[in-house]
Measured scan of single mutants.
Amino acid sequence: NITNLCPFDEVFNATRFASVYAWNRKRISNCVADYSVLYNLAPFFTFKCYGVSPTKLNDLCFTNVYADSFVIRGDEVRQIAPGQTGNIADYNYKLPDDFTGCVIAWNSNKLDSKVSGNYNYLYRLFRKSNLKPFERDISTEIYQAGNKPCNGVAGFNCYFPLRSYSFRPTYGVGHQPYRVVVLSFELLHAPATVCGPKKST
């Protein structure tokens, strides 16, 4: 009989979030998941669920729940959905087409922007091929755009693959930082360890 609440607040209220290319994953298990708490945590810009209804979450049980978190800019949030393409979905964080879970995003301009520009958040701009779903690539190998090998040196047709967002508070919403948490629900042929409040007794 599990009584402890799932530590969603640790994920959502973390002081620092990860850069999207090096997104963070927390496995959540053996706890009571009260998803209604999430609705009250922040004024969400996005709370979209796929393959599951957000209002039914509190009635369900899962084997595992994974919470992935990272920062992107406002106009990239739409890429965090099944079947999307674009720089983020292709080279940084890719959801599977049959994704079961929820994408939660909110504006973090007050936390993640600086007047002089916050350069701490990076994204991958160049990659030889698209990522597979939930693949994480943290390599910093020089990207070869031409025929000549780069031998690890940046220059003509040889690019450092990561680029930094420079978040400034005066930017338009599309270029402001957004914190994203992706909850993916895993149903294996194994005992369910993460249940809503109704199912945990």
Rank of each mutant, 00 (worst) to 15 (best):
N1E: 11
N1F: 10
I2V: 14
I2W: 13
T3L: 10
N4M: 10
N4Y: 10
N4W: 09
L5M: 13
L5Q: 12
C6N: 06
C6S: 06
P7Y: 08
P7E: 12
F8I: 08
D9M: 13
V11A: 06
F12W: 07
F12G: 05
F12S: 05
F12V: 09
N13P: 04
N13S: 09
N13H: 11
A14W: 05
A14R: 09
A14G: 09
A14D: 09
T15P: 13
R16N: 15
R16I: 14
F17C: 03
A18Y: 08
A18P: 15
A18G: 10
A18Q: 10
A18W: 06
S19R: 03
S19G: 05
V20Y: 02
Y21W: 08
Y21Q: 04
A22T: 08
A22R: 11
A22S: 12
W23I: 03
W23D: 00
N24F: 06
N24G: 09
N24T: 15
R25V: 02
R25E: 01
R25P: 00
K26L: 10
K26F: 09
R27S: 10
R27Q: 12
R27G: 08
R27E: 11
I28L: 14
I28R: 04
I28C: 07
I28T: 05
S29Y: 11
S29A: 12
N30S: 09
N30D: 11
C31D: 06
V32I: 15
A33T: 09
A33I: 15
D34G: 10
D34R: 08
D34I: 07
V37D: 09
L38K: 05
Y39S: 15
L41R: 14
L41N: 14
A42D: 07
A42N: 13
P43Y: 09
F44P: 15
F44G: 15
F45G: 15
F45D: 15
T46Q: 14
T46E: 12
F47R: 11
F47D: 02
K48E: 09
K48Y: 06
K48I: 08
K48V: 09
C49R: 03
C49Y: 04
C49H: 03
G51N: 11
G51T: 06
G51H: 10
S53K: 13
S53M: 12
S53V: 08
S53Q: 15
P54N: 10
P54Q: 14
T55I: 12
T55N: 14
T55G: 14
K56T: 11
K56D: 12
L57T: 09
L57W: 09
L57C: 06
N58I: 08
D59A: 11
D59W: 10
D59N: 13
L60P: 08
C61S: 07
C61R: 07
C61T: 07
F62I: 12
F62H: 07
F62S: 08
T63G: 11
T63S: 14
T63A: 12
Y66R: 07
Y66K: 09
A67Y: 06
A67T: 06
A67P: 01
D68Q: 03
V71H: 01
V71T: 06
I72P: 01
I72R: 02
R73T: 05
R73L: 00
G74V: 02
G74T: 02
D75P: 03
D75K: 07
D75M: 09
E76C: 03
E76H: 09
V77L: 13
V77R: 10
V77I: 10
V77N: 04
V77G: 03
V77A: 05
V77P: 01
Q79L: 05
Q79M: 06
Q79F: 05
Q79D: 04
Q79A: 05
Q79P: 00
I80R: 02
A81L: 04
A81F: 04
P82G: 04
G83L: 10
G83M: 11
Q84L: 09
T85V: 11
T85F: 08
T85G: 11
G86H: 03
G86F: 01
N87K: 15
N87W: 13
N87T: 15
I88D: 00
A89W: 02
A89I: 04
A89Q: 03
A89G: 05
D90C: 09
D90H: 07
D90L: 09
Y91E: 01
Y91F: 13
N92F: 01
N92S: 04
Y93S: 01
Y93I: 02
K94T: 00
K94I: 02
L95M: 09
L95S: 02
P96G: 08
P96L: 03
P96M: 03
P96T: 06
D97W: 10
D98R: 09
D98Q: 10
F99Q: 01
F99L: 05
T100I: 14
T100H: 12
C102W: 04
C102L: 05
V103Y: 02
V103A: 02
V103H: 00
V103C: 01
I104H: 06
I104F: 15
A105D: 03
W106Q: 05
S108M: 03
N109Q: 05
N109I: 04
N109G: 05
N109L: 05
K110V: 08
K110I: 07
K110A: 10
L111S: 08
D112I: 05
D112R: 03
S113I: 01
K114E: 07
K114W: 09
K114Y: 09
V115Y: 09
V115Q: 11
V115E: 10
V115T: 12
S116A: 13
G117K: 04
N118P: 06
N118L: 04
Y119A: 08
Y119K: 12
Y119S: 07
Y119L: 07
N120F: 11
L122V: 11
L122C: 10
L122E: 11
R124Q: 00
L125W: 15
L125E: 01
F126I: 04
F126S: 03
F126D: 00
R127P: 00
K128Q: 11
K128M: 09
N130L: 12
N130C: 11
N130Q: 14
L131E: 00
K132C: 08
K132T: 11
K132A: 12
P133V: 05
P133L: 03
E135C: 05
R136W: 05
D137M: 03
D137F: 03
D137I: 04
D137K: 03
I138Q: 10
I138V: 14
S139H: 08
S139T: 14
T140I: 09
T140W: 08
T140K: 12
T140E: 14
T140L: 10
E141N: 13
E141K: 11
I142L: 10
I142N: 03
I142W: 05
Y143K: 02
Q144Y: 03
Q144S: 08
Q144W: 04
A145L: 04
A145K: 05
A145M: 06
G146V: 02
G146K: 02
G146Y: 02
N147A: 07
N147L: 06
N147P: 11
K148W: 09
P149N: 12
C150E: 00
C150W: 02
C150K: 02
N151Q: 12
V153R: 14
V153N: 14
G155D: 06
G155R: 06
G155F: 04
N157S: 03
N157V: 02
N157H: 01
C158R: 03
Y159K: 00
F160H: 15
F160T: 12
F160Q: 13
R163T: 15
R163D: 08
S164K: 08
S164E: 05
Y165F: 05
S166Q: 06
S166L: 04
F167S: 00
R168F: 02
R168L: 01
R168T: 03
R168I: 02
P169V: 04
T170M: 07
Y171R: 00
Y171S: 01
G172E: 00
G172N: 00
V173A: 11
V173K: 15
V173W: 10
G174P: 06
H175T: 01
Q176F: 01
P177N: 00
Y178S: 06
Y178R: 04
V180I: 11
V180C: 09
V180K: 01
V182W: 01
V182Q: 01
V182R: 02
L183Y: 04
S184T: 15
S184L: 08
F185E: 05
F185A: 06
F185R: 06
F185S: 06
E186I: 07
L187N: 14
L188V: 13
L188D: 15
H189K: 15
P191A: 13
P191Y: 10
A192R: 13
A192Q: 13
A192N: 13
A192L: 14
T193S: 15
V194S: 11
C195F: 08
G196S: 12
P197K: 15
P197N: 15
K198C: 11
K198D: 14
K198E: 13
K199W: 13
K199E: 12
K199D: 12
S200E: 14
T201Q: 14
T201A: 14
T201I: 14
